[in-house]
Design a binder for these strands. Sequence first.
DNA 1: CATGAAATACCGCATAGTGAAACAATTCTG
DNA 2: CAGAATTGTTTCACTATGCGGTATTTCATG
Lengths: 250, 250
Amino acid sequence: MNTDQNIGVATTRKTFAILEVLKEEEGLTITEITQRTDLTKSTIYRHLKTLSEMGYVIERDDGFYIGLRLLEIGEKTRNREAGYTIAKRKVFELGQETDERALFFVEEDLDGVYLHRYGSLSETMIGKRRPLHSLASGKVILAAWDDDKVDQYIAEKGLTEYTSNTTTDPDSLYEELNHIREQGYAVNNEEYMDGLCGVSVPVYTPENELLGALGVFGPTSRFKDKYMRNELVDRLWDKAGEVKVTIAYG
Amino acid sequence: MNTDQNIGVATTRKTFAILEVLKEEEGLTITEITQRTDLTKSTIYRHLKTLSEMGYVIERDDGFYIGLRLLEIGEKTRNREAGYTIAKRKVFELGQETDERALFFVEEDLDGVYLHRYGSLSETMIGKRRPLHSLASGKVILAAWDDDKVDQYIAEKGLTEYTSNTTTDPDSLYEELNHIREQGYAVNNEEYMDGLCGVSVPVYTPENELLGALGVFGPTSRFKDKYMRNELVDRLWDKAGEVKVTIAYG
DNA sequence: CATGAAATACCGCATAGTGAAACAATTCTG
DNA sequence: CAGAATTGTTTCACTATGCGGTATTTCATG
């Protein structure tokens, strides 16, 4: 067993260190990237030239930018499953019909990731990662797992406290997940961010495998218990069912 | 001047050679990637281990997949400009209102790239690259350039013929671009693919810089001249104007 | 035109990536 | 269930290649 970081290619790590910096802030110059990484000017220079020659990075007058060839690669993940594309449509419909923010959420490496979102003002949040135990959609995914995998999540990721409402105790989490399994949906009551509530349901494939979670979220002022548990949940179940049916019968 | 491919980091090229293969076809094993590249088994092994350790690639039972961390990086490009996000909304509205396929198109490295699209069945096409001279949206972008840049496009990319309707002669192209500049929109009459027509308008920022092109496309049977040039163009102009206004005044 | 800063080019050195081959694990096959 | 075949993983010696310090050029600025 080899657990040290020495496996693999150090050069590739450097390349992605640069790309991650550009993801955070575009239009940086070489010397600005020097300050944000522990890489040398010549190293960054060489890497950026390589990347821009291949189109993964774009060089403009004011600095370097992420290239659209990386978008092309990344988008592959959103088209992997037929259900993902259908879910995209459902997210938009949800947003339009409820006039709230809506999302489709999947898990990767024990993180929750936004795959589709409706209702963002400036940023789409797509690809952003969130802790599963602190969001309605995340808890829906946890509830679909067996105890072993939930244990693994707790062990590897920990139940970090984001607000005073975050579930940080394993036993409480297990109890809550059982409850979610029974009722078929999850609610987030300001557990990740103060003032933000949400409700979410699981989306299954025709083979009854979990595809992801479909959810709606918004300000506490508007997201009262009755609103979420009656109006929104029913609509979410409908949409989740439509995804399943559309996968099966087009 | 250094024009050979020896500039830069060869190792990074190998990493992306692997990622490009996975973009084309996910779920490949190491030996399958060996057949699709000129890389050694051990090299691919080491690169994949590095990439999956960083989350840019996901290892499953049946092979390797593009990781969502690459989606996160790639999505940065779609949120770069405020106008991009607004255009996304407009593309969806266009699709809903016309019940046709709609797109928002930008240029990078002399290629046209789909940034937003509505109405795809299985694949979103986002990030896919198309030749500018063979699509309505591409010609709109060419028409916004000065002759020098159009010359550069012709020289570097060439006017490849995709159908018998593709404009392959520089003089005809210049003539057509002038026409597009006058009328303020472009039409694609089966110039990229037989049976496929489209119409597109430019989208400008409040500073009157070209942001991209907004378009609608569909089958020749439905996309008659009057339909495109009256109904659709007016609606496209409206939406393009709304993008501009929304950028300026929120 | 001088000054400073950033980008680019150069180059010797040692590291780190490479490929071949050996080994282990897994699957296929009769 | 044994043996074969395929694939994944590890090892290792070699040297190609990535690295960083420095030199040079370009560019902006006063």
